[in-house]
């Protein structure tokens, strides 16, 4: 048995790959649910009703999808150019911290129409700055950015932890380590009243559409892809490699920083060290499930959010640890790698 590279990638197969991968992941996780002594089909049924069964549940799932869309887009943009930005988690925290600090210390008195865009930009800038460090190390010292972005996640979260213990601690929080709050006029308006769903969803969706256009229809999109497929070839074809990677890093870090800013302005109102349950890391899964396609990122983020919100509800009633959601999402990444392989290769005897 051997593998033979396909001449054409059948479009149907490429579209089916994530569906097959998710199905395989759900089947494997089913074994683990059975291990916990719970009825598997009922558990999945409860995950679905837990995520979409009521108005509250559905808006909660969409709220949870917002940071996943943004970190998914951050990973997709970077990975397309083979810039291994695994630092979205740290960039998200720094973006959130920057937005909260800017709101309470600088722009707090400005009206929403001015303050909200300013805060979003501040958050994005913070994310960009954090990713520029590893990029600089790569271009200047040939240090692989995959390790430095991973290590900087810890540095960034410790830095945020230090700030909310000291300079940016909320004095009104009864000693709890939480940051100064985002002011009333810096809070993102609700998309649906009496829910947590905020306009961040609209921003994330709009950015997905913009990025899809940029990737498919602009010179920058093509250059970024060329830089990923073959750096040497790209240089030979006249692509300014350093500048292209820099632009990719600015977009990727900016998106991750924006995810943090939107989360703190739309949902929590202040920063703690438990702001993100790993949105940065799961953004990688989202990007891969989407095959790095920005519009696919939306669908993949929705799947992950469904698992996370639904598993919480299911775990409470059936006694299955809600970590099953993390397991399923991680398994779907591994399954997706296999599925993608078979869109490129066929098996020959």
């Amino acid at each position: 048995m051997r593998f033979e590279r396909r001449v054409h990638r059948p479009a149907a197969l490429v579209l089916a790959a994530p569906v097959i991968a998710v199905a395989a992941a759900l089947a494997l996780s089913g074994v683990l649910i059975a291990l916990a002594g719970a009825p598997v089909l009922e558990a999945y049924g409860r995950i679905l009703t837990g995520a979409f069964g009521s108005r509250l549940a559905a808006t909660e799932t969409l709220t949870r999808a917002v940071p996943l869309i943004l970190t998914g887009l951050a990973a997709a943009t970077a990975f397309r150019a083979r810039l291994w930005n695994i630092g979205a988690e740290g960039q998200l925290y720094l973006g959130a911290m920057a937005a909260a600090a800017a709101s309470s210390l600088l722009f707090g008195s400005l009206p929403p129409a001015l303050q909200i865009p300013l805060l979003l930009v501040t958050g994005a800038l913070a994310g960009m700055v954090l990713l520029l460090v590893p990029l600089w190390l790569r271009l200047r010292f040939a240090v692989a950015e995959v390790v430095t972005t991973l290590l900087l996640n810890f540095v960034a979260i410790l830095f945020v932890s230090m700030l909310i213990d000291t300079a940016l601690k909320d004095p009104m929080a009864f000693g709890w380590p939480q940051s100064l709050p985002v002011t009333e006029s810096g809070t993102l308006p609700k998309l649906i009243p009496r829910s947590r769903l905020h306009v961040g969803l609209a921003i994330a969706l709009a950015l997905a559409v913009v990025l899809a256009f940029v990737q498919a229809r602009t010179v920058f999109g093509t250059r970024a892809r060329a830089a990923g497929l073959s750096p040497a070839g790209a240089v030979f074809a006249g692509v300014p490699l350093g500048r292209t990677l820099m632009q990719v890093a600015l977009i990727s870090g900016g998106l991750a920083g924006l995810a943090g800013a939107i989360e703190v302005m739309g949902v929590t109102g202040y920063v703690t060290t438990s702001l993100s349950p790993g949105y940065g890391y799961f953004g990688i899964v989202v990007a891969m499930l989407a095959n790095l396609n920005p519009l696919g990122v939306v669908a993949a983020a929705l799947f992950s959010a469904t698992m996370f919100v639904g598993a919480d509800a299911m775990g409470r009633t059936l006694g299955v640890p809600s970590y099953i959601a993390d397991v399923t999402v991680a398994l779907s990444l591994l399954a997706m790698l296999v599925a993608l392989f078979f869109t490129q290769y066929r098996v020959r005897r």
Binding site: V285, M288, Y323, V327, V329, A330, L333
Partner: peptide, 16 residues
């Protein structure tokens, strides 16, 4: 990507 997938899977499986 495979390695990151293994890390996400192995750690969440451990917690589970």
């Amino acid at each position: 990507v495979s390695g990151l997938g293994i890390t996400l899977f192995a750690s969440s499986f451990a917690y589970y």
